[in-house]
């Protein structure tokens, strides 16, 4: 079973990296990008388990380690 985890910065948390990328795009002449927020994307391979078990596991993993909820939000998708 495969899953994807997305970790994104919470609203209101400054993202210097995103700001720098947006500035660089505009230096390259690509206008029209108002904001970029940099996050993390993870591909996860899970062993045999039920979907509810997988959801519980991933939520637990995100909450306890993968995301820092002081500054980050998370969501995940389970394939199939």
């Amino acid at each position: 079973m495969k899953a994807r985890i997305y970790v994104t910065l919470r609203k209101g948390v400054l993202d210097p990296q995103g700001k720098a990328i947006q500035r660089s795009l505009s230096h390259l002449g690509m206008e029209g990008v108002d904001e970029i927020r940099v996050g993390k994307f993870m591909e996860v391979t899970l062993g045999e388990m039920t979907r509810p078990d997988a959801e519980k596991l991933l939520d637990d993993a995100c909450r306890r380690l993968i995301a820092n909820t002081v500054i980050e939000d998370y969501r995940f998708e389970i394939e199939g």
Partner: peptide, 17 residues
């Protein structure tokens, strides 16, 4: 200490990157 919750808040990358 921040990650452990022994102190409040979090660290992000320096403004200068």
């Amino acid at each position: 200490l921040l990650e452990s919750g022994l102190l409040p808040g979090a660290m992000i990358v320096n403004e200068s990157l």
